[in-house]
Amino acid sequence: MELIETKTNNKVLASKQIVSEASSILRVKDLNVFAGHHHILKNVELEIPRNKITVLIGPSGCGKTTLLKCINKLTDLYKELKVSGSIFIDKDDILNTDTNIPALRQKMGLLSQRPYPLPVSIYKNVAYGLKLKGVRDKKLIDFSVEKHLREVGLWEEVKNRLNSPATRLSIGQQQRLCLARGLAVKPSIILADEPTSSLDPISSKIIENLFKDLTKHYTIILVTHVLRQAIRLADHVIFMNDGEIIEQGSPEILFKSPKTEQLRAYLVDGN
């Protein structure tokens, strides 16, 4: 509990800023997702503040991953999912438009629960998004690959084997590679789905610290089951249960004085 205390004191200022700035980059309205008769997301309404870390918590199976998939339209991949409602990114309703979905997805980097390196070399993994964007200049790509591999602290480890298959890296290295390749397309939002769940404490620390730095340029939505991590990183917290948003707001309010019994129970069990 001490952890929360110290953190919250520091955070009071920050949260006031959120309220006063009130600049949200992403707004979800009336989002519903069905798989057959299974109502996975129920009337979800939420706002994601710009250049902040929003932490999404909730029990397993409550629909966190599904929510992330709606946000970058990966739900298209699953024909059995019926999605309705709206998701606004800077005024554009991305759910109800057909305009250039690949470009839209490039605005969002995805870091999944398990790393999925593409079946090509380390270099090509990072260059993949750039090439899709139409970048052909070899020098520019080289530069970008090195920059982003450095950014995630992987450069020194892989600089001598950029052309070997990415699948030969350790899981922790793969996860950092996936982050680097996501950053290379210059997204404005990073969707991270339990990005540290398969990592050792040191790699987790690297990713966490990186996330803190990244908020200068990026908005981060982070799903995590690790409450301590949520407390360390959150600027804004959303708590879900069974497909519904139960509470959302600043971490000091949610973590210190939860309004609902559900969140209180979740926090107690989590600690």
Binding site: L74, Q106, G109, L110, L118, V120, Y128, L132, V185
Partner: peptide, 24 residues
């Protein structure tokens, strides 16, 4: 997850199929 990764990097469905499903 592999297809999702490719799509989220901005590939079209066909590009993802080409790189991930066929090449892989």
């Amino acid at each position: 997850g592999l297809k999702e990764a490719s799509l989220s990097l901005g590939a079209t469905m066909w590009e993802s199929v080409k790189h991930v499903v066929i090449r892989g």
